[in-house]
Design a protein around this nucleic acid. Structure first.
Lengths: 335, 335
DNA sequence: AGACAAAAAGAAAACGATTTCTCTCCCTTG
DNA sequence: CAAGGGAGAGAAATCGTTTTCTTTTTGTCT
């Protein structure tokens, strides 16, 4: 292994000088610095992160709470955004784990000397939630995604605005009877409901209670069930909004089983802008949440919390998405 | 921060004694060891990974080469297997990056003192390939997935056996005319082709040249194109094998455009066992590669390369998958 | 009781960086 | 020409562990 010491001997200067040269600090002449840098390249030197961390108390390492099935496209896209942005800024990321009775997320982060932590999804169990909270209330810089902790920055998709946009889009196509099958209750769902009702009210769209049904996220069967329930209404909606694309696919299949074809008989709208949306026939009209950007924003926010600690003030960042038209929605205006 | 020093003062013993107690080394009495451990728990001590790494040259960190869109279900499932297995064995994982002109995968791994590296997918560019090779030829323990490096262990899905199984399954359902739209040429594709032809020959299934067409992995459009080409044959196959589920969906859509319905007119078979396969109507017959297990195996192999270095001998591990029946294949035997 | 081995305890030297502080020089300025 | 200032160079301390080696204590056996 090539160390500063080795370099210093090779160049005939002190270890301190080598350190200064390599870090662009001053206190060393330009020629010597150049010599050192050249020699470093020749000898294949790379700094020892452990030693540097030990001394500086900065690890260039970001901890990440990510207790999710990665197969979930929404979360994996966020993760990718996080990774890309971290990489670009010279940070590495470390998945934080939680072994009840042994150590928690916080201990893990501290053990690895993480400079900060991004909470993507803490896990569903009571235990994991409380460990995540411990982290959020610690002295570490923390940024969360899709949930809000006291006095911490957060980054979320624009669920309220997203649903407003969808309703506005559908209204433009002549839809007046909108049903909303939504996911499990939580911050995200509440935002979406608010956006939905707000946009409907603004356009004088009346939404019967029976048009709003709880389904589940990422669950085509739950969507099918909710759809079936919806079909019992005397007057059918012209369009059904689903909590995500996977659910939407499930709903469309259920409609087909009842002899209703999409979009001729009824329209459907997904959420997330996942790959599936482009694969099915008809393609899905959906709402792209811009996950990659959500991940990136979280990293940028965290880095500024780390590096400008003194003048950092937490805030809630909303990343706007956009409607992706698709074959599953019929244009009722066009006659 | 609670350090060994702090603990030693609190317990009235030497730093060395504390270290021994916490690591279960001998050279300290049972009672003192117990006292130290209790105090450590009380004071909320956790070891400083950087200091430990610096001293021991072991980081409990695994580098991972993963230059892929995570939205790809196949890779993200592998990644998840890697993460889970690593976590279980007390290792963390670090994504290795490659910034041309700055540093390569190897430098990144060394800088972070990785104990070993898993090469999942090195990236497609010339540059990345060669950086990955540098890593594979370094003195670090390396295990690769889906590709083989000289004198290194590898873990791969059983592509050869997978296709044999598929053919065998289809044969059992009465299919005799099989077409194979495969992905870009490479180790994986060659294995699959070999398995396909071997199984066909064993059953006296003749495969006309025009039934074997190159498409692309994960590309529904390429699959559609290849499918169109296939439809020009005077005699159509009874079943088309696709390189993966995404391609399969693209193929089915193309067939529909030509007025052929699946599985009534023609059957289709995917690969990967992805979520999509369960969502479409009909559901996709597919082959589950057991990706999670592939990731796990790679970690186990790497850990033994790291921890039993002296008696480690590289080998190629094959993880077998299994056929998942689905609605896209018609049972021709049943009349 | 005395001698010796074995176990326990601790002092100190690393590991590879950063950083502070001191010491030289050399140059500028009055 | 003397004084003052600034830049360059390096010695040494330090970060929190582990580990070796020496010293001390304890226990065993004749």
């Amino acid at each position: 292994m090539v160390t500063l010491r080795a370099l210093s001997e090779r160049c005939g200067v002190s270890v301190a000088a080598v350190s200064k040269a390599l870090n662009g600090r001053q206190g060393i002449s330009a020629e010597k610095a150049e010599l050192v840098r050249r020699t470093a390249r020749e000898m294949g030197y790379y700094p020892n992160a452990a030693a540097r961390t030990l001394k500086t108390h900065r690890s260039l390492n970001i901890g990440i709470l990510f207790k999710n099935v990665m197969a979930n496209e929404y979360f994996s896209a966020i993760l990718e955004g996080v990774r890309d942005a971290a990489e670009e800024h010279g940070y590495d990321i470390t998945f934080l784990s939680n072994v009840p009775g042994e150590y928690g997320y916080y201990q893990h982060a501290m053990r690895r000397q993480c400079d900060g932590v991004i909470i993507v999804s803490p896990g569903y169990s009571e235990q994991e939630q409380s460990e995540a909270l411990k982290l959020a209330e610690s002295d570490l810089p923390v940024v969360s995604i899709d949930q809000i902790y006291r006095n911490r920055s957060s980054v979320t998709g624009d669920n309220l605005g997203g649903l407003e946009e969808i309703v506005s889009y559908l209204y433009g196509l002549g839809h007046r009877r909108l049903a909303f099958i939504h996911g499990e209750m939580g911050d995200v769902t509440r935002q979406r409901l608010a956006g939905f009702f707000r946009a409907c009210r603004a356009r004088d769209i009346r939404v019967p209670d029976e048009y709003v049904i709880q389904g589940q996220y990422q669950n085509p069967d739950a969507a099918a069930l909710a759809t079936r329930q919806l079909l019992r209404c005397k007057t059918l909606p012209t369009c059904i909004l689903y909590p995500d694309d996977t659910a939407c696919v499930g709903g469309i299949a259920e409609l087909a089983d009842h002899g209703l074809s999409v979009p001729e008989d009824i329209s459907c709208f997904g959420y997330d802008g996942s790959h599936i949306a482009l694969l099915t026939r008809p393609t899905l009209a959906t709402h792209d949440q811009n996950c990659h950007s959500i991940g990136e924003q979280a990293v940028l926010e965290l880095i500024s919390a780390i590096e400008d600690a003194k003048c950092f003030v937490p805030r809630n960042i909303t990343v706007t998405g956009s409607v992706h038209p698709g074959g599953s929605v019929r244009d009722l205006a066009q006659k």
